Simulated scan of single mutants.
Amino acid sequence: MTSTETTTSSWTANDRDPAWTCPAPAPEALEFHRQLDGYAPTALVELPALAEELGVAAVFAKDESTRLGLPAFKALGASWAVHCALEAVGNGTEHAAGDEDGRAASGEVVTATDGNHGRAVAAFARRAGRNARIFVPAGAVHPNAIVAIRDEGAEVAEVAGSYDEVVAAAAEYADGSDGVLVQDTAWDGYEEVPGWIVEGYSTLFREVDEQLQDAGHRGADLVLVPTGVGSLLQAAIAHYRSETSTGSTAVVSVEPENAACVGPSLDAGQPISVETGQTIMAGLNCGTPSSLAWPFIRDGLDAAATVSEQDTIDAAHRLAELGVTAGPCGAAALAGARAVLLGDGAPSRRRHLGLTEDSTLVLTITEGSEANPVPSA
């Protein structure tokens, strides 16, 4: 990983090899989710008004605001990863912080979060009868999100510093206490648990395929994915670049302007860490790509886009007018679509993505506004 950099770029095209494929995500996570109390596919909402505004045939919003009783897609990854991690500990096959030394772990489940991931881990730890300790960056997470995590019965530990520093603190604590670390970003020596989280997220895109087919559409031509460390993005790429996929779906990451590491990493040809600042898109305020996600980003992503705070606020209010209640991270998908498909340079961006007036777009609305309200326009 190179030294810290910053970026102001709003669009980074990636000339991926169209022949590149990867193994299809394992089906076990979807089967597990279908057995959970309260499971149902989240809504895929068609938005004709946005299709007209963006100059395409159809726009759908995959609304994750009611996923398994929680307000974000994170429930998919957390539920599967907590299940797998506790099962592994019970079998004595993996130490919680990633050392495969067979040491018994305590009952406490540990993670770092910008909000939704921590709440989801706490919720599924509670369902499994375990305590949870959730590390958060002090002052960077909305108070509503902190309350929601505590309401799941978890201890909240606020740490001064960036998200990356909070992740390090959580890992150190888990290692020292034999806690079960369930983190959604990977680094050398810690990749199995983040891999389970990515597998969990694959359920979302399997649902999208089935719902588009039911709606009479052949599939998505472009999927926009709000991106933090890149685990959801990895799941999207793994789904749309799998050996069983046509490979024709374009995938674009969307990040806040002041926490955008994907574009610089593509430019550098290796993962880049960027200095992050404050953003209303708290769940995307991550300065380093997951080591597990990076090869998929490098080889399978079509482009990276960044969005401003105001563009995201405007997008959230537009979605609300259309009946989709999105938090800032979720609204980033629409802000990204506008940045890519409208304005100066849009024709060349559309050509790069293979889009026409007959294309179908999917906006991944990753969170509702319950724990992270949108400021007034």
Score class of each variant (00 low, 15 high):
S359D: 02
H352R: 01
A138K: 14
V136P: 10
A282E: 13
E275R: 15
P23G: 12
L212C: 12
A236F: 09
T7Y: 01
Q211I: 08
A250P: 03
V223W: 03
L70Y: 09
G263P: 05
E257P: 00
D101H: 12
A43C: 01
E5R: 14
G92N: 00
A96G: 15
L70W: 10
A138P: 00
L54S: 06
P373I: 10
Q270E: 15
A154G: 12
V254A: 06
G90S: 13
G368I: 05
N258E: 11
E28Q: 15
V208T: 14
D175G: 11
P264R: 05
G92Q: 09
A259H: 03
L68Q: 09
G38Y: 11
V110M: 11
E64P: 06
V208P: 02
V59C: 04
D151E: 15
G283F: 05
P375R: 11
D175Y: 03
V180S: 07
L355A: 04
G98L: 05
A346P: 05
P18Y: 03
A51W: 01
A331D: 13
Q213E: 15
A315H: 07
V59H: 02
A220R: 01
H83S: 10
H352M: 01
L355I: 09
P137E: 08
R16M: 04
L50K: 02
N131P: 14
L334D: 07
V374W: 08
R119Y: 10
A105L: 04
G230D: 06
A260C: 10
A140N: 11
G98E: 12
A316V: 03
G55T: 03
A112S: 15
D267I: 04
D214A: 15
T246W: 06
V198Y: 03
D184L: 09
C22P: 01
A320P: 03
P264I: 12
P48G: 12
G228S: 00
T279G: 08
L54W: 02
E46T: 11
H117R: 05
V110S: 07
G176D: 03
R150D: 06
A122Y: 10
H95M: 07
D101T: 14
L54N: 06
D99E: 14
N116A: 03
L224M: 13
T2H: 09
E210T: 14
S308H: 06
N285D: 14
V262K: 05
Q35T: 15
A371V: 07
P373K: 11
H217A: 08
L222S: 01
V251C: 01
D358K: 11
L319V: 06
T249S: 03
I272V: 15
A78D: 10
D114W: 00
V251A: 02
R34D: 02
A72E: 00
E255L: 00
I197P: 08
D314M: 02
R150M: 12
T246V: 07
R351T: 11
E28L: 13
D99R: 14
